[in-house]
């Protein structure tokens, strides 16, 4: 298909994706999705958070993992940027630091797919930081 340029092109693309999206929305409630937050404070952006967020979006979609990826502000871990928080359905959120594309790939394959722990987890205490 030609490149999407107008809102009409987007409408057509959406219609062709609709069945897939419908299936996903009817089949599951959002709580059953993997929820990912990418820290986007200045320090996160300067150390590559944009690339990591793009990688996660593309790869989770390609690998067929139901997920919601959002941006968040400072999580208080300047020293370990880029950082992401991953919440698997029914589990406590976990924060990973020093995430580049390679680490992100490992997080998807090991932690998200199989629940295996991987290096780079930051102990959770940011709830107390304002």
């Amino acid at each position: 298909m030609a490149k999407i340029k107008s809102l009409d092109d987007l409408r057509m693309m959406k219609e062709s994706l609709q069945s897939k999206i419908n299936l996903r929305e009817k089949g599951e409630d959002p709580g059953s999705h993997v929820q990912i937050k990418v820290a986007m404070a200045t320090c996160g952006i300067a150390s590559g958070a944009k690339t990591v967020m793009e990688f996660m979006m593309e790869e989770l979609e390609k690998r067929g993992i139901e997920s919601v990826i959002t941006q968040t502000g400072c999580m208080g871990y300047c020293f370990a940027e880029p950082t992401i928080e991953v919440k698997l359905p029914g589990k406590e959120p976990v924060v990973f630091g020093y995430v580049d594309n390679k680490k992100a790939d490992e997080i998807i394959e090991k932690y998200i797919k199989n629940g295996e722990l991987v290096d780079g987890i930051i102990p959770m205490n940011y709830e107390t930081i304002e």
Partner: peptide, 13 residues
């Protein structure tokens, strides 16, 4: 608009 399958098309547009 946050659906992961849409993002790539927004960028392309």
């Amino acid at each position: 608009i946050g659906d992961p399958s849409i993002s790539v098309y927004l960028k392309e547009m």
